[in-house]
Write a protein that binds this DNA or RNA. Structure first.
Lengths: 196, 196, 196, 196
DNA sequence: ACATAAGCGAGACGGTACGTCTCGTCTTCTG
DNA sequence: CAGAAGACGAGACGTACCGTCTCGCTTATGT
């Protein structure tokens, strides 16, 4: 998050948005190429053709640069689906998440998740940037589904909303990315079946 | 993994097992206290009362020290329960896992999980130490449960065996440890219900 | 000699002359206190309140730091005497040299002399700093003395100019500093007597 | 100096003289090849095919090994001349010293002298091994010369005995080895002339 | 129009940790 | 026991980044 976000600044040379972008792009490139550990501020500055101070003027730490670099990148999840068919919507969302885990974004998410442990700001930003919306939407889908009688009325909504992401995340982080393409359907079939 | 693993060495002063232990203990302590990133070889050496060379004589890098530190660590899983009542056994295991997350081992697991991404050896050791036995046991419980008709015969065994750990892990890593004490029961009630 | 000597650098923060001085002073102090061998880059950095990189940015090795430390050191020769009385002038110079050996500069000269053997740059700088002026002046005194008939006309000027420093140096380095106060007079009386 | 010099040892396996020699030879070789600074105990041990403890059992430090290595080597100065002709004897001795300074021995003496500054044991041993005898002999020659009227009766014997070695040493250490072959004769002619 | 104030690239700065090296000591097994 | 091998604690080596701090520009703005 940019240190100065408001528009209260008026005098002096304004910050160049070119540099913002150059820095974030460089950070992202290097992150993908070498992972979080191989990422150095010196490297970002060099790659972006920018002085280190120009980075630190905008962000307080390596972690924050990466937060924003990654945040700007991953948020292109497409629209949250809402077709009226809850199960189809959930499968869509699971699949979008699954695709995120695969591809280059997966490595980035993993790297990011790894750093969350140590940097609470990162954790929150991670949440805000590409978890919160999805979570909210899934919850609404489930709630509506329960209300419409598509899931049993005594369902544990909280868990039901969480089970898909949880299984995908578990597969990704704890089972070395064992993510078959039909996993979304499997999950729905097993844990969100139609009431008999 | 120790640099010299065979028993071909015979001459000269043998490596001191005291030092092995002192180093690994120090590494583990510091890992829990400060996380992987806050862990320095210099710190380990100082805490273990050992020269840096004594560490590098045994392991090639920080990662390798940690792998072995982890390997030497006996994760207190408690006994793997087997009472004949599948659901009770699963609740027991979920609870043990939940306690692990809450205790000192939890911090350690988080720290390791973060590093797994970058170090495959670490990932494997992590699996061996914290995960493999439990996973195997849970799967057996589920398989037996299905065989005995305690779960529907068309259950997705793989997912059923995974859903509990997945939800706990998700709560722990992605929801900042939102782990109510009755979560095991909730999970079983929602996802592993008795067949009607 | 400083790594960057030209004035081609223009951009970036300029090197601080304060640090140059702090480093060289620290080096010189430690050299006198502990000798060349007891001199560590880490020690210099600590004493100068400077990071090690700041030293290595300027010099490539310990030897080069010392060379320059020595170069910056103004050896207090006192004025080169020229009273017209050759023998009195020589006694003065011998005494100044003797005092140099006895004082802090003596320890320094010994330390440097020891190291000269291994580092030719050091040898030359040592010569420039401690020796060259004195040598030239003594030679001139002797030459004039011979010209004026104060020494026999067939004198070996080279040796005559050298005998005093040689004896003092020999006493200092080979006889543990056996340097009685009247040694200058003894030398003149024995080796530079008035022609009969 | 060997740590155990007496012959009070009787029990157990006796020290191998082969090893003494192997160690000293290795030390000397390496000293000549790389100088005192490039000399490591590890290197000596390896070159001699000997354990480090075997060296430390005999000598307390690197310096002492070198003392003995060098001592054993240089003492082959030949007989101290005593022909009855004082000046010829002195020229002989000066020349022997001069030859020592030239050759490979010179580098060794310089290396040795350099270390004397820091190691008093070295200084004393240096003295004992290849200075003391010569000095005593020169002094006797001079004393006899004065007694026999070959030098003026009011000569400063101490200085007269010292002037040759002092000039040679000065040339060697302070003038980069400016040692012409007739320097011995020059010295005698200038500073030890026949009384008129 | 021009002063002002901030932005900027470059890179120096005090630190900290890296992985390597040698010191002089210690500990084992072999002869 | 001596000896070869080599582990050991200590601590310096020279390198790489960290996040901060100057420098001498450059670039809008607001007077």
């Amino acid at each position: 998050m940019s240190i100065v976000t408001g528009d209260e600044r008026r005098v002096g040379r304004p910050r160049s948005e070119d540099r913002d972008r150059a820095i974030l792009d460089a950070a992202l490139d290097l992150l993908v190429e070498q992972g979080f550990a191989g990422l150095s501020m010196e490297g970002i500055a060099a790659r972006a053709g920018v002085g280190k101070a120009t980075i630190y003027r905008r962000w307080k730490s390596k972690a924050e640069v990466v937060v924003e670099a990654l945040g700007g990148h991953v948020c292109q999840l497409g629209e949250l689906p809402d077709t009226g068919d809850v199960r189809r919507d959930l499968v869509s969302m699971y699949r979008a998440l699954l695709e995120t885990f695969k591809g280059a974004d997966g490595a980035m998410m993993a790297a990011f998740a790894a750093e969350k442990v140590r940097h609470h700001e990162l954790r929150d930003e991670f949440d805000r940037t590409f978890v919160a919306d999805r979570r909210r939407h899934m919850r609404q889908l489930i709630e509506r589904g329960v209300a419409e009688g598509r899931f049993p009325p005594d369902s544990n909504i909280e868990l039901l909303a969480e089970v898909g992401p949880a299984l995908l995340w578990h597969r990704f982080t704890m089972r070395h990315g064992l993510l078959p393409d039909d996993l979304p359907e499997q999950i729905v079939a097993q844990f969100l079946p139609e009431p008999t």
